[in-house]
């Protein structure tokens, strides 16, 4: 019996994900860091695919890789980040950062190490039937059992969108812009004057 292909894929994707996540915080160039973050998302999507969560995996690629990270990259490329001033406060903030890091590590150790959360405490879920549609099941759950949660989340997102637009919609007197509606309403007689003149000799 050769190695289980799913296991091999799992280890491969996990290794790439962990490596890429580490590079996000260690690489010097911010653009490279963003690209490593993209790689992390992508391998995580592949891992979700292995967990039979096809819909979530594709949405992760669509939303995070396809839209959010493009905007992120867009901003990071335009910023001219000077690394030296960013590192100035390193020693100053080190105690606080180290405390936070230690707390996170301890919490995760507690979760992973505790008896209730150990992997062998939970039986592996049965693989979905061949015809089962992950997308359909998710849709049914979201629009029946979790309808209120879903609608509230949607309302919050809508408010956030409107707030974000409202924050940037201010009058900027120095910017020049045209009104396309006015532009397309231009008529010939507004712009063009035909004059008759005698041909010169």
């Amino acid at each position: 019996m050769i190695l289980d292909i799913y296991l091999v894929l799992f280890w491969l994707f996990s290794a790439v994900a962990v490596f890429a996540a580490l590079r996000v915080i260690t690489v010097r160039n911010p653009v490279h860091a963003v690209l490593f973050l993209v790689l992390t998302f992508f391998t995580c999507a592949a891992l979700w695919m292995l967990l039979e969560a096809e819909f979530l995996a594709i949405v992760l690629v669509l939303v995070y890789v396809g839209a959010v990270m493009v905007l992120f990259l867009f901003v990071v490329m335009m910023l001219d980040i000077n690394v030296a001033p960013v590192r100035e406060g390193f020693i100053q903030y080190l105690p606080l950062a180290a405390t936070v890091a230690v707390i996170v590590v301890v919490e995760m150790a507690l979760v992973v190490g505790s008896k209730t959360f150990r992997p062998n405490q939970m039986a592996a879920p049965a693989p979905a039937a061949a015809g089962a549609s992950n997308t359909e099941e998710l849709g049914v759950l979201l629009y029946t059992k979790y309808l209120y949660h879903f609608e509230i989340a949607a309302a919050i997102l809508l408010v956030a969108i409107i707030a974000a637009i409202a924050l940037t919609m201010r009058k900027r007197p120095q910017t020049k812009y045209q009104n396309p509606a006015q532009q397309v309403q231009v008529r010939k007689q507004d712009r063009l004057k035909i004059i008759k003149m005698e041909p010169e000799k």
């Binding site: 096809e54 594709i58 549609s133 992950n134 997308t135």
Partner: peptide
């Protein structure tokens, strides 16, 4: 696959990278 339309959308959005 059942999520084909989403798959296509996700892939075409990758092209911009």
């Amino acid at each position: 696959v059942d999520a084909a339309l989403l798959y296509v959308l996700a892939l075409t959005s990758m092209g911009v990278y």
